[in-house]
Nucleic acid binder design. Structure first.
Lengths: 231, 231
DNA sequence: CTCGGCTGTCACGTAACTGTAACGGAAGCG
DNA sequence: CGCTTCCGTTACAGTTACGTGACAGCCGAG
């Protein structure tokens, strides 16, 4: 499994160091930002999987950052955990209202934050915490890096494997070629968007070997989706 | 969201009672079947959202039921959770390969089963909880790019899809051809206004396939509107 | 080095989709 | 009732987007 990338937005240096250390120990990749502007920049550039956001920030308040994130089309669903000082109960409400997925009250133990992060990731990206993903008669074993369909082993190249995995993590959902390039190839690699077509074909060829039904739906002028329903 | 309907397939009466009680407490609707034949019948008749399937069953084994479900075109994606006795490790593999989405080892606590059920529902049917627009018996799933009427899938071309989406976002409202061109085609594209008529026809044809009532109302010398009411 | 697997790109064919025109019928209007 | 306007319907040619096979470059294993 690829490491989830967590962005910490916090202006206290000591707290950053502490969290950074603890999150990396738990197998996360960690990034830092010290104010709201930098946070928004990092979100656009590094596309974190989750943001830990301090309530009190210089330049832009945490709540404002939260609102702006929710207005970015690319990052509307980015999970956010807010850090708030003790007893700011009304703030808590406003925090959740402004779009945070969870909140942690200071002072807190690092392990509590880790637990919350895992919970939120599990909830919003269920497949991240599973060791195997299945859909219809398809099964992907993440640990063993193996794929079977109806029990029969299927060999996939690395790219096809990541592609299928991405589809399995969001079954039914349509992705444009650009989205797939970002998610599967990485945001800093430039390849032709038609390349996606070729890999989708190779994936199809592998999955449908033996005359099985096609599991990937083409949505003309929109992209592809994993979809077992017959057309 | 409507209550998910869970079908329990289990031959031990005591276990059924226990599960029935606990699942209802959690806000699920619950149905029961005591053997494989009854299970398949119930699936066709009641169309459950998820099946909890015992491995050992009279008349038809759980695994066989599982396979048959996966071969029903209507229910290929029906989530299945298998109940298996402790230590049947090879069975577990075979269970997943035959198409189960998860498994729970006996003995288990009801709350564990509930957690698994919720996890599977979240994972396998994200579209239900995501953004979708519906009107009358019509439903448009934006993430999956799918349209259904009365449960039946409907195929639309890209333009018809955008057109219907625009109507669904403003149900009942009448749009002139020019307004539709601006909204659906874009302000900077010039096409004949009569082109709208053709696409409206194509949309109607797709939506009304099978002798259903027309959902698009023509307003003479004004335009079109989405409208379920009869005149 | 050589080989085989994997990747990205291209070119070509084709199926799906699009816009326009043309015809006929329905609706308004005197 | 005749005329006009507007709309439904069909057909068709042009365009677009996708599927497919081929191929050269890359890279690590042997």
């Amino acid at each position: 499994m690829m490491k989830p990338y967590i962005l910490i937005v916090e202006d206290e240096a000591a707290l950053i160091t502490l969290l950074h250390y603890n999150l990396e120990k738990e197998g996360f990749e960690v990034g830092e930002a010290v104010d709201g502007e930098e946070a928004l920049f990092m979100i656009r550039e590094r596309r974190p999987d989750l943001v830990v956001l301090d309530w009190m920030l210089p330049s832009l308040s945490g709540i404002e950052v939260c609102r702006r994130i929710r207005r970015m089309p690319e990052h509307k669903n980015l999970p956010i955990i807010m850090l708030t000082a003790r007893g700011e109960e009304t703030d808590r409400i406003r925090g959740l209202d402004s779009g945070a997925d969870d909140y942690v009250v200071k002072p807190f133990s690092p392990s509590e934050l880790v637990a919350r992060i895992k919970a939120v990731l599990r909830r919003l990206r269920p497949a991240l915490s599973e060791e195997s993903i299945s859909y219809s008669d398809l099964r992907m074993d993440l640990a063993a890096h193996k794929v079977t369909r109806d029990g029969a082993a299927i060999h996939l190249g690395p790219t096809e494997f990541r592609l299928l995995r991405h589809f399995l993590e969001h079954p039914g959902r349509v992705f444009s070629r650009e989205q797939l390039l970002d998610a599967v190839w990485g945001q800093d690699v430039y390849v032709e968007s038609r390349t996606v077509d070729v890999h989708v074909r190779r994936l199809r060829q592998a999955l449908n070997a033996g005359g099985r039904a096609d599991l990937i739906r083409t949505v003309r002028s929109a992209g592809y989706a994993l979809d077992a329903s017959e057309s």
